[in-house]
Write a protein that binds this DNA or RNA. Sequence first.
RNA 1: GCCAAGGUGGCAGAGUCCGGCCGAACGCGGCGGCCUGCAGAGCCGCAUAUCGCCGGUUCAAAUCCGGCCCUUGGCUCCA
Length: 493
Amino acid sequence: MTLSVTNTLTGAREAFEPVTDDAVLLYVCGLTVSDYAHLGHARVWVHADVMHRWLEHEGYDVTHVENFTDVNEKIAARVGEDDLGETESEVAAHFTAATIEDMRGLNLMRASVYPRVSEHVPEIIELIETLVDRGYAYESNGSVYFDVTQFDAYGDLSNQQIEELEAQGEPDERSEKRHPADFALWKAGGVSPTAIREHAKHDHGDELPTGETWESPWSEGRPGWHIECSAMSMTHLDETIDIHVGGHDLVFPHHENEIAQSEAATGKQFAKYWLHTGLLETKGEKMSSSLGNFFTVSAALEEFGPNVLRAFYLSTEYGSKQTFSIDAMTEAEARWNRLERGYDTTCEALDSVDARTKATDETLRTAVKDARSEFQRAMSDDFNVREAMAALLELTTAVNRHVDEATAYDYRGLKRAVETIETLGGDVFGFQFGRPTAGDVSIVDDLVELVLTVREQEREAGNYDRADELRDSLSDIGVEVQDSDDGPTYRLP
RNA sequence: GCCAAGGUGGCAGAGUCCGGCCGAACGCGGCGGCCUGCAGAGCCGCAUAUCGCCGGUUCAAAUCCGGCCCUUGGCUCCA
């Protein structure tokens, strides 16, 4: 089944055809490491991660590049704050390390490369030189600007008319530009005191940081914001890539400018498919730590765990905006619990049955096939993760029903169900199934079994109050006990 | 002002590109039943949707066309 994707460039859903058969060059617009990542950033990561995983599942060889913007005035403004670092690169390194930790926590697949702006200044300068040589950029007081009037397709991605674009830059910067919509490729000098004061979260006193600067043919200065992605995308992927992913807020001006400078420099299409993820919002109120509705990724991981977060993100299509709320997280938790319990139930049933059993359940086997094809259909349809998740949950119902009603278990049917959940739910959706394995927790298992044995004795003696007390006590420490015909089962936290 | 997205049951959220399988998915919540000492989990069933409004096209529209109302986001800090 061919994959179709919604391309912001054309505004339409298109059949996905990579430049090179069987290979996908994927660039994800990464984070400016001036602070800890929050749940909005993680939404992009998880959707991009699932796209990556699905493409690999479909047999593509995926090269995934995700940058860290480590040169930015907001980073420079935090130099000297608490123990973040004494230079721009130290502050950036601090937040980069924290972000990588967040990504690991979310069980994201590793990107092929995580390039940094500070390590690509030569490539950036080279790209700017090409643009100047070709007449698309001009130097002004040591700074270099892209001349939007020279690039006919400017505004195509975001449907902007050059005439409509109002100048809103700083007055002194505007005077350096020929057209208000021109944007900086290179800025002379260090970060301005104005910018530092605007973004600083602490008092710098008299000695303001200026950020790092680099030598260039035009001045000692700093690269503009947009040029980095062009340079890094071309350096680590190619002049034309397949998919460029980013948040919707980057369509203009960031991605518009990337297209302009890249295509002006190479004369080739920069990215075939532009996929933009909808933004995360909070209900009725702005995100704010003081209101308690703002979550950094690390705080959310602590609170909900990676699987619940994924269930949350995968309950909406990547292109839609999504509202964060505690209710939404509660529902996400329920969705994840249902899937995981279904998986556990299936595994336990499978363990209890002999592989040579002759029993079959066509309803179950059909349900497995349906789940696979429905998942495939949904993901091929512009990565419709919610429908794909629905397919998995329907399989869960089918398995539960089989376990609930069948007089004898269907070994092959259960086996296929487990494989399906592991492949689609685990490999593609990135959920992590399975309890902590024996070895590090075996003593815990033994102790829980011991308590349950005592409880069973109390139950048999009719001392239900005592039995319930034990169950409640276990529940208090996170051990969930469930009674069944075959005796009690439990789940560790 | 310019650009874009969206208005579907109590909530949330698919479906709209390619009209009929949508008498509207999955899930949460509600109600009833099975199971159970009880609870939870699980299973079965029920209820709640004029698919923003008006008009049009069609044998057939949540889906196409026209008009209108409303909401939200972006417009050089942004994922």
